[in-house]
Nucleic acid binder design. Structure first.
Lengths: 331, 331
DNA sequence: GTGAAAGCGCTAACAC
DNA sequence: GTGTTAGCGCTTTCAC
């Protein structure tokens, strides 16, 4: 049986209220000696507050939920680590949920997190449009990262990457290296994320006086399996000298396909990634990519969320992160 | 304000006790109509039980803690996903903690998890020896994965990979391919994990009538950065034709170093990994490695833990997972 | 078949 | 300065 506030109160000959005050540093009006006696006792008995009980009364759990499509995707792995580190520094815990990019799964997680009394939620990038009605009904403060979300009262912040510009930079870089027929690989065609990136991709072409061949555009998912599949299909159809991928995993998949067909990277076909995951420089042929400051974005998201939670009169923040091209070996 | 059991009781004209019974399917002695009325109301009001309140009284949270050194390491990413998926299927949540392989950090997480009332803990592979005193004192059931841990009352299960045999298989495979001077890269030299693997490595040599050159053995950490550094050092000293790495990340680091120095893999130097992370087949030169069934081990660990928690008279289990060589391109 | 009552460990008014 | 009291939302005897 763990020691409780009651045990300490009994041994110290005071009430539980006094113990509670001391242990929560709300002890401005408590005598020096009682204070010390209680502190000593707590240390001695190895007292750890029961955060369940505390949460029940304070109605705050200091737990944050993070919903990502799949932690296995290195982009989300890094994001989650960044969020968790930041939250912990501020005295919060996180609960991770994998939605697999399925709307109903995300909704189930949302309800679940609500039931567990999380104080706030991070909705990480996904092609799924968040369930606005549910979010509003739950009323839990949340931050949206690269998601298409309405401005609800409980929206604490939006932390987005300027993907249009990122895609444009990537394509422009490729064009500057002499490429004229560039394939484009991205996530779900209907998602805002992909639409914006495609816009950037097209803008870069326009600026260079080039046209985008629609046959070279392939949308599906951000995963490596789609990258491989799409590249294989592309290879069967037209010709091109570079692939502009909208995620590093897509780029890895594309590279696998290219190799399978005997193409060398970058000699026969250049490949650009997007995200700059920690793996990118470790690949046998170090991946050229677009850096989107993953770690920083996670930190910012959590800080915005906690700021919103703790500020009695919270302001909504909108962050837009700029990207930079990282030229390595694949392009 | 979320709807509570009280709201439902009021609307249904019954007591909270009755509502509680119905909603927990302890309603054997409740009238069919009342039961239906309550269920309907719950659905209609979108009732979600407050698990904080429930935990306080039942003294069970259905939350499990998972302590890993670093989720960024793909081995742990996969393990965590496996644990989380399995736990969720059984109605449990997980809280992830990154210890960075630091003993005090692990202890802090342990205390933290205890304070948050987790029902059980998974202690994933690490070179750090768990704090036995703390574990005993907390008394929270836990499962140890590839850790050196004493048999405490609260040890629910051990789920270990037969690393000695795995390392032996890896070395034997390399030897069978004609390699005679094989470098060995592993984690902390003092850890049981590394000792056992080195034993296996040596055993394979003995069986082939070969001797292990101590100059080719490098112990440090399981991370890619150490793999690169150690390989660079090795390259400056002796010569060898293969590297037997005790983690896939080590193998990736070794490959980076090899490439930096102009060596081709596997033509100039073969590389074997260990773990078989999902990335292994995706690398430009697909990594030959030792499969340790990561996903399955996570599933087993969680199932053993939950089994222990839910069985009124729990048995301790000891699982030993066998490994297999996966020959791909690097060796 | 159903309800009253106690209490999980803690905090927060408000007394004194 | 410190204690009393009243819950937070839920489960669980035990009584009717």
């Amino acid at each position: 049986m763990a020691t409780t506030i009651k045990d300490i109160a009994q041994l110290a000959g005071v009430s539980t209220a006094t113990v509670s005050k001391v242990l929560n540093r709300k002890d401005a009006f408590i005598g020096e000696e009682t204070r010390e006696r209680i502190r000593a006792l707590a240390r001695e008995l190895n007292y750890t507050p029961n955060s369940i009980a505390r949460s029940l009364v304070t109605r705050r759990s200091r737990v944050l939920g993070i919903i990502v499509p799949d932690i296995l995707n290195p982009y989300f792995t890094e994001l989650v680590r960044a969020c968790d580190d930041t939250a912990r520094l501020r005295g919060y815990t996180t609960i991770l949920c994998n939605s697999d990019g399925i709307a109903t799964s995300e909704e189930a997680h949302l309800a679940f997190l609500a039931g567990h009394g999380v104080d706030g939620i991070v909705l990480a990038a996904s092609d799924v449009v968040p369930n606005e009605g549910l979010l509003r009904e739950l009323g839990i403060p949340f931050v949206s990262m690269d998601r298409e979300v309405a401005t609800l009262d409980c929206l604490a912040a939006t932390v987005d990457t300027d993907c249009r510009s990122g895609a444009m930079q990537s394509a422009a870089y490729l064009i500057s290296r002499g490429h004229k027929r560039i394939a484009f690989l991205s996530g779900a065609a209907e998602s805002a994320n992909t639409r914006m990136r495609l816009e950037g991709f097209e803008a870069a072409h326009r600026q260079a006086g080039l046209a985008v061949d629609p046959a070279l555009v392939r949308c599906g998912e951000f995963q490596h399996s789609f990258g491989r599949r799409a590249t294989l299909e592309l290879l069967d159809g037209t010709s091109f000298t570079a692939i502009c991928c909208m995620s590093d995993m897509l780029a890895i998949g594309a590279t696998v396909a290219l190799r399978e067909r005997g193409f060398r990277v970058p000699a026969d076909c250049a490949v650009m990634g997007f995200d700059n995951v920690y793996l990118a420089p470790l690949l046998d042929c170090a991946l050229s990519t677009v850096d989107r400051r993953i770690f920083e974005s996670g930190r910012i998201a959590i800080e915005a969320l906690i700021g919103f939670l703790e500020d009695p009169d919270p302001q909504r923040t909108a962050i837009l992160l700029e990207t930079t091209v990282v030229a390595r070996e694949t392009a």
